[in-house]
Computed example of a mutant assay.
Amino acid sequence: MSVIDAEAAASAAAAMPGIPRDADGPVFREPWEAHAFAMALALHARGLFTWPEWAASLADEIRGAQAAGDPDTGETYYRHWLANLEKMIAAKGVATADALHRYRDAWDHAADRTPHGRPIELRPEDFAP
């Protein structure tokens, strides 16, 4: 993954005060969190959504998770971010929910066969039911 654009990250952080951050900007506990953040930045830059639209949708996602029992310790923030990203992509017609589930399952299959520390690579057989 390329380095996250600092200006874009600062814009996102200003629009959403709940983003985990330190003095230098957003912080991530795992690489996938940074990837999800970067995907949202890229889709915002392409005009798929505004930051106020994103923030409202993410707040709804978090409220729903809390109502379902999420303890809101901050450790699940980027899980909500990713769920919201998937929801927005489907709502905007970029990909269907079924396609997103198919790719998520394929990534799970690929991750299961990949030794720890190695890059995950999708193969056609990962998409088999």
Results as ranks from 00 to 15, higher is better:
residue 66 Q to H: 11
residue 83 A to F: 12
residue 99 A to D: 12
residue 95 A to D: 13
residue 86 E to C: 14
residue 10 A to L: 06
residue 38 A to H: 03
residue 97 A to W: 06
residue 22 D to M: 03
residue 120 I to R: 03
residue 122 L to I: 05
residue 64 G to A: 08
residue 38 A to T: 08
residue 98 D to S: 06
residue 17 P to T: 09
residue 79 R to Q: 10
residue 11 S to F: 11
residue 29 R to Y: 12
residue 10 A to V: 09
residue 51 W to L: 02
residue 75 E to P: 01
residue 48 L to D: 09
residue 14 A to S: 05
residue 71 P to V: 11
residue 68 A to M: 13
residue 62 I to G: 00
residue 17 P to K: 07
residue 67 A to I: 01
residue 62 I to W: 12
residue 77 Y to K: 01
residue 35 H to R: 14
residue 67 A to N: 06
residue 89 I to A: 02
residue 94 V to I: 09
residue 48 L to T: 10
residue 92 K to N: 10
residue 12 A to S: 03
residue 84 N to I: 06
residue 25 G to F: 09
residue 73 T to M: 06
residue 110 A to M: 01
residue 76 T to V: 03
residue 47 G to S: 05
residue 18 G to V: 11
residue 65 A to K: 07
residue 119 P to T: 11
residue 12 A to H: 00
residue 117 G to W: 07
residue 120 I to M: 03
residue 63 R to Y: 10
residue 55 A to Q: 14
residue 64 G to N: 11
residue 97 A to I: 08
residue 25 G to W: 06
residue 98 D to E: 15
residue 18 G to S: 14
residue 42 A to E: 15
residue 81 W to F: 15
residue 34 A to P: 05
residue 82 L to I: 12
residue 18 G to H: 13
residue 106 A to M: 01
residue 90 A to T: 15
residue 36 A to G: 10
residue 17 P to D: 09
residue 23 A to M: 01
residue 120 I to P: 01
residue 36 A to N: 09
residue 84 N to G: 15
residue 56 A to K: 08
residue 114 T to R: 05
residue 48 L to N: 10
residue 113 R to S: 07
residue 122 L to K: 00
residue 23 A to H: 00
residue 62 I to N: 00
residue 86 E to T: 14
residue 110 A to V: 00
residue 90 A to N: 07
residue 73 T to L: 11
residue 64 G to V: 03
residue 44 H to K: 10
residue 66 Q to E: 09
residue 111 A to Y: 01
residue 73 T to C: 12
residue 47 G to Y: 09
residue 33 E to P: 04
residue 45 A to E: 14
residue 84 N to Q: 09
residue 61 E to T: 15
residue 38 A to S: 08
residue 18 G to R: 11
residue 27 V to T: 14
residue 62 I to Q: 04
residue 111 A to K: 13
residue 110 A to K: 02
residue 95 A to H: 14
residue 101 H to G: 11
residue 15 A to G: 12
residue 76 T to H: 06
residue 89 I to H: 03
residue 97 A to N: 11
residue 21 R to H: 12
residue 109 H to F: 10
residue 84 N to A: 08
residue 40 A to M: 05
residue 115 P to M: 04
residue 90 A to L: 06
residue 84 N to P: 02
residue 77 Y to W: 13
residue 113 R to N: 13
residue 37 F to D: 02
